[in-house]
Each structure stands twice: as structure tokens, then as C-alpha cells.
């Protein structure tokens, strides 16, 4: 009799562990989503100022600026986080391209207002890149948990579905200035 009670208690304990570990992983993703959203919000607020300050100098980049403004609007009105992720990846690539092209505009490089905006944007991009990586790891952990035994059984009872990872632009993997991240 005691063995039976012990066995039932043990199974209950395992179920609690499984449930909690899945909820923990789900919350981790939500936590990272919240952090990314906060950084993105800061970037949305920054983009109009950036576009405004560069459009007078960068006549030839008009199409890029228009695309950035369009993507910002789309990303802000995205219905799901996955949709937002797609717009954000493209927006990041375009912003990188824009900042690289600044080299061709000496007058713009001399503008104090632009330099300040550029610095803020670079810092924001670094935060977003780090948050994306943290989000991706949280998603990978979560996806592993809902597919691995024995948590897959509990995950299917809870109706948990696979999540999509944030695609990291290739240039972000290669051209990171390590020093900047530690700058005082």
C-alpha cells in the first residue's frame, strides 16, 4: 500500500516538475519578447528623427529611407511577434546599410545631431542583437523541451506549439566591433 502511495506521489512530483519547467521556458520567451519590444519601441521613436536628419544630405539614398519608414510602420502594426521579427530583420539590414553609406557624405558626418543619433542607434542595435540571441536561446530551449521525452507529453496536453527563432542577419555575425560593447 505504501509503495503505491509512494509511486503515485513520485509521479505527481514528476508531473509538477514537468509542468513548472515548461511554464518557466514559456515565461523566459515572453520575458525576452518584452525586452526586445522595449528596445524596438526605442528604435521606432528614433527612426523618424534619424530619417529627418539625414534626408537633406542623402539624396541618393531616398529609396532606402522610404523603405525604412515603410518597414517601421509595418513592424509597428504587426499582429504577431513572428511577423514583427520578419520586418525587424529587414529593418536592421537597411539601417546597417544606411549607416555604412554615411561614409560617403562628409557633411553628414560632421553634423553633431546626426552623430548623437548614430551613437544612440548603434547602442540600441547592440542591445537588440543581444536580446535577439537571448530570445533565440530561450526559444531553442523551449522547442527542445516540447519535443523531448517526457516533457513532450505534458506539452501536448498543454497545447504548446513550436516557436520561431529570430533570424540573425549574417553581417551581424561578422562585423561586430567588440571594443564598442565595453566602451565607457
Amino acid at each position: 500500500m505504501w509503495y503505491l502511495i509512494g509511486g503515485v506521489l513520485f509521479i505527481l512530483f514528476l508531473l509538477v516538475l514537468m509542468y513548472n519547467s515548461l511554464i518557466y521556458r514559456k515565461n523566459q520567451i515572453e520575458n525576452m519578447e518584452g525586452a526586445i519590444d522595449a528596445y524596438l519601441k526605442q528604435r521606432y521613436d528614433l527612426i523618424p528623427n534619424l530619417v529627418e536628419s539625414v534626408k537633406a544630405y542623402m539624396e541618393h539614398e531616398k529609396s532606402v529611407l522610404e523603405e525604412i519608414t515603410k518597414l517601421r510602420t509595418l513592424a509597428m502594426s504587426a499582429k504577431s511577434f513572428d511577423e514583427k521579427i520578419e520586418y525587424e530583420s529587414r529593418l536592421s539590414e537597411l539601417l546597417d546599410k544606411l549607416l555604412l553609406n554615411v561614409e560617403n557624405y562628409p557633411q553628414l558626418r560632421a553634423s553633431e545631431n546626426f552623430l548623437q543619433l548614430q551613437e544612440t542607434l548603434t547602442e540600441l542595435e547592440e542591445n537588440i542583437a543581444a536580446a535577439r540571441r537571448a530570445y533565440n536561446q530561450a526559444v531553442t530551449d523551449y522547442n527542445n523541451a516540447i519535443e523531448m521525452f517526457p516533457t513532450n507529453i505534458m506539452a501536448s496536453w498543454m497545447g504548446l506549439k513550436r516557436r520561431k527563432v529570430f533570424e540573425i542577419p549574417e553581417n551581424e555575425r561578422k562585423n561586430i566591433d567588440v571594443g564598442k560593447l565595453f566602451r565607457n
Binding site: M32, N127, A129, A130, A131, R133, A134, I176, V178, L181
Partner: peptide, 16 residues
């Protein structure tokens, strides 16, 4: 803080 950890440990820093 997972985000701060990744700000320190970028891909380049990990390689180094």
C-alpha cells in the same frame, strides 16, 4: 541577466 551576458560575450569575444 541573459541580455547583458550576450552584450559582453559577442561572437568575436567568444572566439577570442
Amino acid at each position: 541577466d541573459p541580455i547583458e551576458a550576450r552584450k559582453i560575450l559577442t561572437h568575436n569575444v567568444m572566439r577570442e
